[in-house]
Amino acid sequence: MDTYTGTHIIYIAVVFLLAGLVKGTTGMGLPTVAVALLSLVMAPMEAAALLVMPSLLTNGWQMLSGPPLYPLWQRLRGMMAGICLGTLVGGAVMLQTQGGGMVLGLALVLYGLLGLSSWEWRLADDSPHWLAPVVGGATGVLTAATGVFVLPAVPYLQALRLDKEELVQAMGLSFVVSTLALAVVLAAHDAWQPAAAGVSFLAQLPAVAGMLLGQRLRRRLKPETFRRCLLLVLLLLGVHLVVANG
């Protein structure tokens, strides 16, 4: 999409306001919600290009607002390296194909089903060292294919039994690395055009406004109830994208 009409701008602003609200309420979900809703009117990679600046701002904020980052980076650096490599490799393949909508739909369906189920992944302290780079690589490939960063990164981080603050910070770190790797892939393949870069920069405003609103909302309702409603919506969006691209 080389140009954006007034209707496009309004829709994009509303999407990032909602995505920021989800982020502020649950601590995650901005990329997933934004790409899922934007993909109803544009290709997933076009949606991902708009995501870059809001994702860097909100997840960088989340990453730096916790305890010192270096110990967490040391623990997760294998996963981060895998994310970078997987995104670069996946981008070289997926940007040459037209299957992004189907892959995104399937990813949203899987994410929704996993979130709504009672299944939990738990890792022992002696889990193999190669697992983190493999999880990172798989996350990178899905990032390149869909613009969504959550699978399998978030279930893996939850399985590490981090405390609440560490988990929120670890997700922020993972999402920042994923965003930077995706930005490199988009730029290298000429998929981040000036128009998209400008709109992405402006989209930070509704994203931050939504995030601040979500943080206030979090004090007034049960986060788990909100999260389950969100997962159900994402599941339905995923089914719609699968059917539309099938």
Rank of each mutant, 00 (worst) to 15 (best):
K164T: 12
M79P: 09
P194S: 03
Y111R: 01
V150L: 14
V184G: 08
D163S: 01
L232W: 06
L116R: 10
G112V: 07
W192I: 02
V134E: 05
L142C: 10
G60E: 05
L142A: 05
A196E: 03
A181K: 04
L131G: 06
A203F: 01
L151T: 07
T139H: 07
V22N: 04
T179Y: 09
V154F: 00
L231H: 12
V150A: 14
W61Y: 14
G20Y: 00
Q193I: 13
L221W: 13
D125S: 14
L131Q: 03
Q62N: 10
F175C: 06
A13E: 04
T26C: 05
T87C: 02
L18W: 03
T3F: 12
L40V: 11
G24K: 05
L186W: 02
L234Y: 01
P152G: 01
W73G: 01
W192L: 11
G82H: 02
D125Q: 13
A138R: 02
V239H: 13
Q62G: 14
G172R: 00
A19Q: 10
T25E: 03
G210Y: 02
V239R: 13
E166Y: 06
V103W: 01
R216N: 09
V93P: 11
V185K: 08
P44D: 11
G210V: 07
Q96S: 13
S127E: 14
L50V: 10
V22L: 05
E166W: 07
Y4F: 15
L202A: 08
V176A: 06
G105V: 08
A43H: 10
S55Y: 03
Q158W: 00
T97L: 13
G100H: 04
L69C: 15
A203C: 13
W192Q: 06
D126T: 07
G105T: 09
W73I: 15
T179W: 08
G238L: 07
M80W: 08
V109G: 04
H240V: 09
V109C: 13
V199W: 12
G172V: 02
A244T: 12
L72S: 11
L151S: 11
M63S: 10
A48E: 02
A244V: 10
L38D: 05
Q96L: 12
K222V: 04
G66S: 03
L167M: 13
V14W: 12
L182T: 05
Q204R: 02
A19S: 09
L180Y: 05
Q74A: 09
A132L: 05
P152L: 00
A159I: 04
S55T: 15
G210P: 05
G246D: 11
H189T: 15
L17Y: 06
R220K: 12
E46N: 08
V176W: 03
L221T: 14
A203S: 15
Q62A: 11
P223Q: 00
G99Q: 02
A187C: 14
V141H: 04
L180A: 02
V14T: 15
S117A: 12
